[in-house]
Design a binder for these strands. Structure first.
Lengths: 227, 227
DNA sequence: GTTGAAATTAGTACGAA
DNA sequence: TTCGTACTAATTTCAAC
């Protein structure tokens, strides 16, 4: 349950295209901004804050839900106070052609809060919440390791969660900090240009330190023991 | 804004202890289970589903909010349909003694959805939502790289988000037959359907492939160019 | 912790701009 | 389409038990 990939047509995994059906406008965006911070706001108050009538607010809210822009309204609970004080990231390497089984197994693990398929050294990242570190270790060695689709894992603990935003929206890209005056990346508000490589920008930062990890780089060493 | 560490006493970063103030019971848990899946449910319906009166439901809901167990009610929006089709993970190595500056810079980056301090090869993991891959590249090379606290980064793209659960609760932990008898968080009467897939499959996977990455392992090579 | 009544709000329908 | 209004059902608040 709680499957994602709502925008993926099939199980292929690549996020699909944008906004079929509903034509998002500034009012829709504003509604999203308000709702992600207070999902229990009354429709009347929502209508007033975005400056439309109450009836229109109902219509638009229904449209947002029906079109899948809003997937659900949820409560953000403090996992620590709820009794799950340990958060870990499990990076797993998945045997090819066993993805379907891997996904099926994940659905059976309720302690998994998030799972994403990634490029890079590993194939997937799983975030779990557990009561203690021993439980994480048990989970990894006794349950994850028993999944045939899992070839290798790497465990990393989360020491602190600095910030979690209810969900980023395009309209968030506005204010830029002033402390990098060498570059003023056009704080626009509505039109979204395809973020060109910014031809004018000679970077003064040594980019040699930056590593861009593609789809299969560095994975060979983990595959070598698979045959 | 949207700072986390609500359970950390200061900015030290280590998640703190559990449930100060409020004594969680089975009814509180059940309310959380319901609210994380439908934050807009009426209190009357919530009261009926957990089997208490409405007034009690109001009282308990207020308590959950006041105690911080429920941090907020939010809307899960489909970022793809909202216009941010690309999700990336940025693993960054942070210069020691510059953590405070690093956190301050993060607060200025609205495209950041999540940031956690981790053990392992890197120091922090940042999840960003962007309209396209070029925007990610621009963000990494021109904004992240300009932060003095950032020593190195590694970018990984998310190809698919397999699942996201609104927030894991202790009651999610299905009954484990035998593997962790030291902690048994009493799943009570939650009707958790047993999966058809055998959880205790034969351990045919060599555990030697499992890597457990501690706090500083493998980090030396990224620090070598810092002096 | 529970009930019940008053005040408020939600949800829907319909006509008009 | 969107808005404004009216109307009924449902919810929240507050009181007393």
């Amino acid at each position: 349950m709680t499957e994602m990939s709502s925008s993926s047509p099939s199980g292929t995994g690549v996020p699909g295209r944008i906004g079929i059906g509903l034509q998002m406008d500034a009012i829709h965006m504003k509604m999203l901004e308000i709702l992600r911070e207070n999902a229990r706001i009354s429709v009347a108050a929502l209508a007033e804050r975005v400056g439309i009538s109450r009836a229109s607010a109902y219509t638009r809210l229904d449209a947002l839900r029906a079109d899948g822009v809003i997937k659900r309204f949820t409560a953000e609970v403090d996992h620590v106070r709820a009794g799950l004080g340990i958060t870990a990231l499990l990076f797993v390497t998945v045997r090819q052609q066993m993805w379907k089984q891997f996904r099926a197994q994940l659905a059976q693990m309720p302690e998994v809060e998030y799972c994403a398929i990634t490029t890079g050294q590993h194939d997937a990242m799983i975030q779990v919440r557990m009561p203690d570190v021993a439980a994480v270790h048990t989970l990894v060695t006794e349950r994850l390791a028993n999944i045939p689709a899992v070839k290798a894992t790497e465990t990393v603990f989360i020491l602190d969660e600095v910030l979690r935003r209810p969900y980023v929206l395009p309209s968030d890209r506005r204010q830029q900090p002033r402390q990098n005056p060498r570059k003023a990346p056009a704080p626009e508000q509505s039109p979204r240009r395809p973020s060109g490589i910014d031809p004018e920008g000679p970077s003064t930062i040594p980019l040699g330190k930056m590593r861009f990890v593609g789809a299969a780089e560095g994975r060979a060493d983990m595959h070598k023991d698979d045959d």
